[in-house]
């Protein structure tokens, strides 16, 4: 293909255009089929009001029903709490671990591997494990807490604690992964800066605040967006551990969408929720990247 295009020798601009199109075509076809078309399809579907036994009609009725549904507001609230509760601590921990483990020794390599381990376990498998860790009374957690004199706690069965338990697993699962990005970011900071600061007598905290964190700007931006997307799409453990309960206290937007689409067979409501959720995520990602970028020092 390439040879043919080159041997024909049309004008250089056309040639690169055709070549580019030919090279991009496979991904374009796949993207259109599996990304663009579904996006358009869901958006269209969210505008079709179809209730049992009635002719479908166009309109914004699904969005009105969505807004009136207390389960949806609950799911949105939970997702926001879940996002704040997982993103901030896991990024702080990831940065801490990256700073502590940035040197190259054998011990550090072992420690890094240990921290990355949770990332290698599929979330479903991890959730199935944690079900037994959290078992009230007989679980691993309660077993050790009992030795400290703490009574049995119904971690996953209490509306006050269940979301916290879900958040804890997510932090445990993701921190090591984010640490990798921070390690890469740290490796990109030239040693000269730190040396110069050291000569000037800057303390550890000053160096962190004035050099390391500002220069990690792009990493923060990237990790924040990844973490945001994760809070929306990683709900395997919710399904395995609580099914969104007790009383919807761990229900998330994505699980709500699933419930509407598959349990209540309400494609319109599910599509509307999807549109709202993806739209919201897009807006937040753009805002997050923008505001972070303002403080980012990209290397020229």
């Amino acid at each position: 293909m390439l040879c043919v295009t080159l041997s024909l020798r049309p004008s250089p601009g056309l040639r690169t255009g055709v070549l580019a199109l030919a090279l991009l075509a496979p991904s374009l076809v796949l993207l259109s089929m599996f990304t663009y078309w579904p996006v358009i399809g869901v958006t269209l579907r969210s505008l079709v009001e179809q209730r049992f036994g009635q002719e479908p009609s166009w309109g914004f009725g699904n969005f009105a029903r969505l807004e009136a549904d207390p389960h949806f507001s609950k799911a949105v609230g939970n997702t926001v709490l879940y996002a704040l509760g997982t993103i901030l601590p896991s990024i702080a921990l990831a940065l801490g671990f990256a700073l502590a483990l940035r040197t190259q020794t054998r011990l550090v390599a072992v420690l890094r591997t240990i921290l990355l381990m949770p990332q290698l376990i599929p979330l479903v498998a991890a959730a199935a494990l944690f079900v037994f860790i959290f078992l009230p009374g007989g679980g691993l957690l309660d077993y050790y807490l009992a030795k400290l004199g703490r009574p049995a706690t119904n971690w996953l069965g209490s509306p006050d604690l269940a979301l916290g338990a879900i958040i804890a697993i997510t932090i445990w699962k993701n921190t090591g992964y984010y640490m990798l990005f921070f390690l890469a970011g740290l490796a990109g900071i030239p040693a000269d800066y730190t040396e110069a600061a050291l000569i000037d007598g800057a303390g550890l905290f000053t160096r962190l605040r004035r050099i390391t964190i500002p220069l990690l700007g792009p990493t923060f931006g990237f990790v924040t967006v990844i973490a945001l997307v994760n809070t929306l799409v990683q709900i395997d453990h919710v399904i395995v551990m609580t099914g969104g309960g007790p009383s919807d206290s761990t229900n998330m937007i994505l699980y709500y969408i699933y419930q509407q689409a598959e349990q209540n067979l309400d494609a319109g409501l599910a599509s509307a929720a999807t549109v709202v959720c993806v739209g919201g995520l897009l807006a937040i990602s753009v805002l997050a990247l923008r505001s972070l970028e303002r403080g980012i020092h990209y290397e020229s």
Binding site: L135, P136, G137, G138, N154, L156, G157, S158, P159
Partner: peptide, 19 residues
């Protein structure tokens, strides 16, 4: 009966272990 929600795993486990 313990407070809160107890799923099938928790209940079966409590029964097996005499709790």
């Amino acid at each position: 009966m313990p407070e809160g929600v107890n799923d099938a795993n928790a209940v079966a486990n409590a029964f097996f272990s005499g709790r």
